[in-house]
């Protein structure tokens, strides 16, 4: 109930993204997806590879065009054709952090250019001195040294590169950041470094994140709310604790059961819950996204919803 009072930063309504090579062969990567992201929160999208997580992220920054539905940023439509001014505004305010820090940095450019690229594009500095000042500040904030500015990306370690990617986004002073699996390409020992930086910036600047990941333990650590996506459809949205305590949808349950337990005795005896999509009989009773209460949304038909309610709240 409290959530309704919070400011919605990003709102996705019935989004479809279809890839078609020709009219005959088309693939629906994102199917009727809707969710809201509130100011200052971390909203995570979780799902297996190819489930459409990244596509949603890329649809927001308009790399992938929407086939149906709309995306609103602070109440303003940002999908489809929009005015040049709005376009510039959105590009500046919504930033993206990429999965592979090696691939997402231009290897033939110095760190100075990479971090300043957005500043140049929007001319966000008074003079050259101001630009250097800004770049040096942000590079220090992500824990790197100003002497790194003249270096090239291949001279850095994975964690350092990802922090350069982070600096490149942060220097734009964005309000919303899409983090597309920002740590899945990193060594386990330096994941926390990047996650802590993300949290630090959120606290300092009131950023909102769309965090795309497939590692549930990390998602649990960083997110306020989680959406579980399967084959382009969102099957369950809930707050982090709610979802981890009461995973209702069978797909969510199967994801939870796949989290490794750092104890070989338990891990060996653990029974994996395997999700079988054919268990849903949607031939007569059509499914939809239903609010179970307590901010817990789930995808199912009437019969399933009744069952989920019974499990969650008792009879």
């Amino acid at each position: 109930m409290e959530e309704n009072k919070r400011e919605v930063v990003l709102s996705i309504k019935n989004l479809d993204v279809v890839f078609n090579n020709s009219r005959k062969h088309s693939f629906k990567a994102v199917d009727n997806v809707s969710f809201d992201i509130y100011k200052g929160e971390t909203f995570s999208l979780v799902g297996e590879s190819g489930s459409g997580k990244t596509t949603i992220g890329r649809a927001i920054v308009r790399i992938n065009p929407c086939s149906a539905g709309a995306i609103y940023y602070k109440g303003k439509k940002i999908s489809g054709k929009i005015s040049r001014k709005d376009d510039r505004d959105v590009v500046r305010k919504i930033q993206m952090i990429f999965q592979d820090p090696a691939a997402s940095l231009n290897e033939r450019a110095t760190i100075d250019y990479i971090v300043s690229e957005g500043l140049y594009n929007f001319h966000l500095y008074k003079d050259e001195k101001d630009r250097i000042q800004k770049v040096e500040n942000v590079i220090r904030e992500v824990g790197l040294l100003p002497e790194h500015l003249t270096r090239y990306p291949h001279e850095f370690s994975g964690g350092q590169r990802q922090r350069v990617g982070l600096a490149r986004s942060i220097v734009m002073e964005p309000e919303f950041i899409i983090a597309d699996e920002p740590i899945s390409a990193l060594d386990v020992s330096i994941r926390a470094q990047v996650l802590n930086l993300l949290k630090k910036f959120q606290k300092e600047r009131g950023l909102s994140y769309l965090f795309i990941a497939h590692d549930l333990s990390i998602v649990r650590f960083i997110s306020d709310r989680i959406a579980v996506i399967h084959k382009g459809k969102i099957v369950e949205i809930a707050e982090t604790n709610e979802l981890f305590e009461y995973p209702l949808h069978p797909y969510t349950k199967s994801l939870m059961s796949a989290i490794p337990v750092p104890d070989p005795m338990i891990e060996k005896q653990k029974k994996l819950f395997i999700y079988d999509p054919s268990q849903h009989d949607y031939s007569v009773d059509k499914p939809s996204m239903v609010d179970l209460g307590n901010g817990h949304f789930i995808y199912g038909n009437q019969r399933e919803i009744d069952k989920y309610k019974e499990i969650r709240f008792g009879k």
């Binding site: 993206m96 450019a109 594009n121 490149r168």
Partner: peptide, 22 residues
């Protein structure tokens, strides 16, 4: 369509600069 070019698009880099720099 390499990822660093997508990153440049996300930063609003105009096409001539993407061609000359990326």
């Amino acid at each position: 369509d390499r990822e660093y070019s997508l990153a440049s698009r996300c930063l609003g880099t105009p096409i001539p600069r993407i061609i000359s720099k990326n």
